[in-house]
């Protein structure tokens, strides 16, 4: 079995009496260390798919296995625990807590571990150093640029050393320069730290940084080689 394996996954949402069919009989397998760019039109179900892999939502039918864990028969609490150890999340709008400094935001996931306070602080600073923002440790999100906030968010995503990073349009809100920095950072995390990355993006140039590119359209996955995209 692959590192990430989705088999015959169906996801429906119920809106009142209406059923929205988002994902239909979807299959996907990724090996550890992969960097997947997931593309597709708005509303095609990219975030939904990401949520299933990240264990924050469960499929209507089919199975989702990540790093040997079968997510579709876990309870909410089991999933929460599993997420904290296995997945780092990066969102389009950073989603930092505005009342905490960068350092404290990064430290947040470590509150779920048994680490001592001094160790948590050290790990948080190490993560900030990895994203080159150690000097902004005491700044609040409001005092940082969008690109810097996203780097703090990435530091938060990696601080507990998860195997998988799940990024939903991480450059969607950034200018080209900042976006390039974020993409370079993700590439480093993938290549040097061995993180498996699944990234949703609208931007073909962003997809260039990935090893694999897949298109989602009307709930179905279509493969396309990276070479084709950049050609």
């Amino acid at each position: 079995m692959a590192f990430i394996e989705l088999t015959n996954v169906v996801k429906n949402y119920e809106k009142g009496s209406e059923v929205v069919h988002v994902l239909q009989d979807l299959n996907l397998s990724l090996h550890e260390g992969d960097f997947l760019a997931l593309m597709g039109p708005s509303g095609s179900g990219k975030s939904t798919l990401l949520n299933l892999i990240g264990g924050i939502d469960q499929p209507t039918a089919g199975s989702v296995v990540v790093d040997g864990a079968n997510l579709d028969n876990m309870s909410g609490s089991q999933l929460a625990k599993w997420r904290s150890a296995t997945i780092g999340f990066v969102f389009q709008f950073y989603n930092l807590l505005p009342f905490l400094t960068a350092e404290r935001n990064v430290e947040l996931p470590l509150l779920l571990t048994n680490l001592r306070g001094s160790q948590r602080k050290e790990n948080a600073l190490t993560a900030l150093r990895t994203v080159s923002l150690e000097d902004r440790a005491k700044h609040k999100p409001g005092e940082l640029s969008g690109g810097q906030q996203q780097r703090v968010a990435i530091a938060r995503a990696i601080v507990a050393d998860p195997k998988v990073l799940v990024c939903d349009e991480p450059t969607g809100d950034l200018d080209r320069q900042s976006a390039q920095e974020i993409l370079a950072l993700l590439e480093t995390l993938n290549e040097q730290f061995g993180k498996t990355i699944i990234m949703v993006t609208h931007d073909p140039l962003a997809a260039e940084h990935a090893k694999t590119v897949l298109h989602l359209d009307k709930g179905v996955l279509v493969e396309s080689e990276q070479a084709e995209v950049s050609a």
């Binding site: 990240g54 924050i56 609490s77 929460a80 625990k81 904290s84 150890a85 999340f89 947040l108």
Partner: peptide, 11 residues
């Protein structure tokens, strides 16, 4: 929602 995503327990 973010805290839950990170792995903070519902209860």
């Amino acid at each position: 929602g973010v805290l839950k995503t990170i792995g903070f327990n519902d209860y």
